[in-house]
Amino acid sequence: MNNKTVTFIRSTFMIILIIMTIIPIVWAFSLAFRSNAEIVSMRGINRHTFYPEHATLQNFLRLFQTVNVPRVFLLTMFVSLSVTALSLILNSLAGYAFARIPFPLRSLLFALLLATLAVPVEILIIPLYPQIHTMGLMNTLTSLIIPFCANAFGIFFMRQFFLGIPRELEEAAMIDGCTRLRTFVSIMIPLAKAVLITLALNIFLQQWDSFLVPVTLISSESKMLLQVAINYIYSGLYFQNYGVLYAGMVIATLPIIIIFLFLQRYYVAGITSTGIKG
């Protein structure tokens, strides 16, 4: 095979993968701007396959009548930001201790921590439900925040970062009489800005997309989070109004795509750094 053939094969695959990725998204996006009558009458492929015949915003109006969109957004924002903020604090504190402070049982506790990676929330949800019930947290936003504000991945991630920082920096501060906490806050945290953004972005998006936990633990419609609300629109489709569903999907997805486009460098850094060292 000469180089030309290789380049040709490469470009062909590249274009096929782009089409596979983009087409479903563009097509679904267009459904949000079509009347239900238009959607259900779509059959073949024609010039209106990707662009509505009669573009309309009625789906978005209907969406706002079906679901309290501002409240769903505020609640989702509140839960996601709370989990993110608390996680950053708890995970970086613990990550720093595991990287830098020599204390008894450190490696044992760290091994135990890593072992918890083997039990994801999909498995834990079964015992969590009765536990949350016993704790009196059923159907509260607290049950969506507190259990998720520290995790092994975040601690491991922060530890890896702190391990790479030269000791001299903090030793100088400690000799000057700073406490550990003071050193941590005024020296380590400023150095960790980029990794903290990476971790924050990962946790925030994970919370924004979270479905299993809120759909299991929250029963009242007034505390519905975003992803559950989309499912709610779908299950409430007694007259099969697909347009409203797609409008909801567009509204739920646009903000995170915009966040991603601006901060993708940080987000991707999270995947690649753990992948190699892991």
Binding site: A94, L109, N151, F184
Partner: peptide, 13 residues
């Protein structure tokens, strides 16, 4: 310090 730093996260976990 060590135990104090990991305590909040470990209570949750």
């Amino acid at each position: 310090d060590g135990f104090a730093f990991i305590l909040p996260a470990f209570i949750i976990i």
